[in-house]
């Protein structure tokens, strides 16, 4: 029951089939990496899980700890415990980071309860320190005019403040220099534990040097074609995605 489970998921957009009988199980306490070439359906998977309405789900199921989330509204899925760190975080002008996170936290509270502002800021500042973010950032508009690295740090800050059961990270490493990559990874590693599962979607093995996965999955043409231990990421890095295409395209 303590798993994120995707079963035989078939998804298309504008008539084109993207995910083909995709299945994946992530138990709590584990970090799974999902690697694969561009256009193979990794980001589609992330958005479908989060409840994006642009995709047409033909069949299949997604459950969080046994609870169905497929077809639910994005906010209901978030409340059920899923967090998606976006590949391209959206800018929300005029809404400060602190107010945004506070509103997101408040949305999870039962009717009539409110947030203790002092404790909230204490926790927020602690987590910003962990991510080496300047405290002045709390007053800045969410992602508005942020550099790529700042946006990604801000995603991880939100992820850690919202305490999700399952974290989906969509190409969090893109746009990060090596220092930012280390800091972000440390932030993620701090969140690892028996009560949380991770799906780290990435193109490159580099991120997985810092966030060492329990399982690596290789995705190609809408499904997982190969899974293995952390070392698989290195093998993939040295052999390249052509190796995937050659080895698995025919079986697809």
């Amino acid at each position: 029951m303590n798993t994120l489970e995707i079963k035989n998921l078939n998804v298309s957009i504008e008539g084109q089939s993207i995910l083909k009988d995709f299945s994946l199980t992530i138990p709590k306490g584990e970090v799974h990496a999902l690697m694969g070439p561009n256009g193979t359906g990794k980001s589609t998977l992330a958005k479908v899980m989060a409840g994006h309405e642009d995709y047409e789900v033909k069949s299949g199921g997604i459950t969080l700890d046994g609870q169905n989330i497929l077809g639910e509204e994005p906010d209901a899925i978030a409340h059920a415990g899923l967090f998606l760190a976006f590949q391209y975080p959206l800018e929300i002008p005029g809404v400060s980071i602190a107010n945004f996170i506070r509103a997101a936290r408040a949305a999870r509270l039962p009717e009539g309860e409110s947030i203790n502002a002092v404790e909230f800021y204490k926790e927020l500042y602690q987590k910003m320190d962990d991510l080496k973010m300047d405290r002045k950032f709390t007053a800045r508009s969410l992602n508005d005019g942020f550099s790529g690295g700042e946006k990604k740090r801000c995603e991880i800050l939100q992820m850690s403040m919202l305490n999700p059961a399952y974290c989906i990270m969509d190409e969090t490493d893109s746009g990060l220099d090596i220092d930012a990559l280390k800091t972000v990874s440390e932030g993620v590693n701090l969140m690892r534990g028996p009560d949380r599962g991770f799906l780290v979607i990435t193109h490159y093995q580099r991120l997985l040097d810092y966030i060492v996965p329990d399982v690596v999955h290789v995705m190609f043409d809408g499904r997982i074609v190969h899974s293995g231990p952390a070392e698989l990421a290195q093998e993939l890095e040295s052999k390249g995605y052509d190796w995937v295409k050659e080895s698995f395209a025919t079986t697809a």
Partner: peptide, 14 residues
Amino acid sequence: AEQIFYMMQRGLSE
């Protein structure tokens, strides 16, 4: 719609 989706993913209602 993408901004709304982003905010709803954080748990806010529409």
